[in-house]
């Protein structure tokens, strides 16, 4: 092997590893999104109650915090990722049933889903093609997320519709930033595990969809 090859070989290995990570992440992301659609449909068909929906969401959070970190480097981690996304999909059942019951609700849900897809593909594609490092946004995004969570806790009890709309608007912007941040971490070596990368991007998509749906319903004059 020449000196030239020895210098280039590690760089080529890194590029191959990154490309493999990107391919695995987006393949798993598309499968988990489809799986969530199936479980959300099942949740709607079974007419699960908001209480069951909440338990499913709490179960997903439990898997995310307690089980995924211990299994992310094994084959079991794949099942955990499907468990998280399946439970989150199931938890969406009553929410979607509520929105679909609103006049024109089907169109609102379809618009929110299509809009989320366009935003996700646009931002993720932008970060992938420019290969820019958006790591500098991390602190700003996480502090913003903490502030939004505190506002959500307050509004659970205050129930101010304008604050609820403002929170959704802020979360849509934060999730858009998170898509850039998470994709850039995959491209630039900040994230090397495809299971973690998939769950991060899935959560960006999931939160973006829910809050975009809330915004669209409110502005369309729905009962939300």
């Amino acid at each position: 092997m020449s000196t030239f090859d020895r210098v280039l070989a590690p760089q080529q290995d890194a590029v191959i590893a990154t490309n493999k990570l990107i391919r695995n992440t987006y393949m798993l992301l598309s499968m988990t999104l489809l799986f969530s659609v199936v479980t959300a449909g099942a949740g709607m068909a079974m007419g699960i109650s908001p209480a069951i929906s909440m338990i499913a969401t709490l179960g997903a959070i439990g898997l995310l915090w307690l089980v995924l970190p211990r299994t992310e480097n094994s084959a079991a981690g794949l099942a955990v990722v499907f468990g998280i996304t399946g439970l989150l999909g199931l938890g969406l059942g009553p929410l979607l049933t509520h929105y679909l019951a609103i006049p024109g609700g089907g169109k609102l849900v379809a618009t929110a889903l299509g809009g989320t897809g366009v935003i996700f593909l646009g931002l993720s594609g932008y970060a992938l093609t420019t290969r820019r490092d958006f790591n500098f946004m991390g602190g700003f995004l996480f502090v913003g997320l903490v502030v939004a969570l505190i506002a959500m806790i307050a509004n659970l009890f205050m129930e101010i519709p304008a604050l609820s709309l403002a929170i959704s608007g802020v979360i849509v912007l934060l999730m858009s930033g998170m898509i850039l941040y998470d994709t850039s971490r995959i491209v630039n070596g900040g994230e090397t595990n495809y299971l973690r990368a998939t769950v991060s991007l899935y959560l960006d998509f999931y939160n973006l969809f829910i809050h975009l749906l809330h915004l669209l319903t409110a502005f369309a004059g729905g009962d939300d």
Binding site: L108, T111, I119, Y126, D133, F136, M137, V172, L180, F219
Partner: peptide
Amino acid sequence: EDWRAALLPIAAVVGFIILLILMVRGN
């Protein structure tokens, strides 16, 4: 320059959402 590169697509998202809102309000 980094912030400009990040805020430009976010601004495009804001524009797109306004478009979606106008679409759903038009119905």
